[in-house]
Design a protein around this nucleic acid. Structure first.
Lengths: 187, 187
DNA sequence: TCGATCATGTAACAGGTTACATGATTTT
DNA sequence: AAAATCATGTAACCTGTTACATGATCGA
């Protein structure tokens, strides 16, 4: 369900095509929601048939027509209703946690690789978020409610990644310690 | 796919029935993976038909028979293969982030309620995790690799919750500030 | 006696992933 | 000439959620 409302919220800000929405969800909105273009086109078609958005063909000279979607009044109401309903924290589901539950079957080497690639991913994404924070939030003088909320959402993404990096420190410590003990036993 | 391997890992530790697995996933394994009993029974049936687990009927005097599942050799191999494959960080998907993206449509009051219930959930779960950490990890003298991995997985759950609580502090600060500004403007 | 726990499922549906498909234009 | 980008989809499949279903036993 949340994808539906993520789309409505994005279209409320400004009308857009499926393609544009896909781009935004891949970049500036990764920390808000993730969806593939297939999912987005499918959901837009449903929103259209439910009359929560209106599609308008935008002719282009050199390229095929685009479909620009905008919110209808009913769409805005549906979004507002949803915003006022409570939603629980989504359950945790990370394959790495599953791997850790496999005990001796998980070799320290395989684990070390997983940890290294996780760190890389976190550092990369965090760097990206820091750039966004600097350019869009810290440097701009804007102070609207919407702008503050957006910043807050980004901060959440950042704090999550930082927590993962902190955890990786703990994990590395544990791995080092385990390695030392093995060396001490083996020679 | 990960549910499949979460089940294999649990069964590798010790054979169990679907009911027992459901209980464990609801309590001590919430930070590892989440699944409903329907999903677990369905996946166990598939694992059985794929010969990765073996079902054995356990007769009981007063109650209907249980089905105790255990890993087969093929099941252990399948798990080991999976453990050695890389897996990316799962994408972030929290409805609260979507709500924050709705701007002025999200009333400070509705947001405050969401934040309060999130805090409650985090504090509760974190308290539960702390008890587990104290009784199973800090107090016990065990130092096997499996035990260390389990602790690490729990630590991840804890650090995530703590990060969310830190974020909630930031969010409250922002809300207070916004409220003050509104009061200053209105009188 | 009533609700909780034990114990197992089926069915329908919604949400997410992967693969396939098309075709023009712009950049390297 | 090849690769990336613009722009839109269909189809199959897997995973996760919700609703429904059954029936015994145990404790308050």
């Amino acid at each position: 369900m949340a994808l539906r409302y993520a789309l409505l919220a994005a279209l409320h800000k400004r009308p857009a095509t499926g393609y544009e929405l896909t781009q935004r969800f891949k970049t500036r909105l990764t920390h808000v929601w993730n969806a593939s273009h297939q999912q987005i086109y499918r959901e837009l078609a449903r929103l259209d048939s439910d009359h929560l958005v209106l599609a308008e063909a935008v002719p282009q000279q050199t390229r095929p027509d685009k479909k620009r979607y905008q919110l209808t009044i009913a769409g805005k109401h549906a979004l507002e209703d949803w915003l006022n309903r409570p939603h629980p924290l989504p359950p945790q589901r990370d394959p790495l946690q599953v791997k850790l539950s496999a005990g001796e079957l998980l070799s320290p080497k395989a684990l070390a690789e997983s940890l290294a690639s996780l760190r890389e991913e976190c550092v990369g994404t965090l760097g990206y978020y820091r750039v966004i924070e600097h350019t869009y939030f810290r440097a701009s003088g804007e102070a609207s409610l919407a702008h503050r909320y957006q910043h807050l959402a980004l901060r959440r993404g950042m704090l999550d990644l930082e927590a993962t990096l902190t955890w990786l420190e703990e994990a590395d410590e544990l791995m080092d310690q385990t390695n030392e003990e093995r060396l001490a036993v083996n020679g």
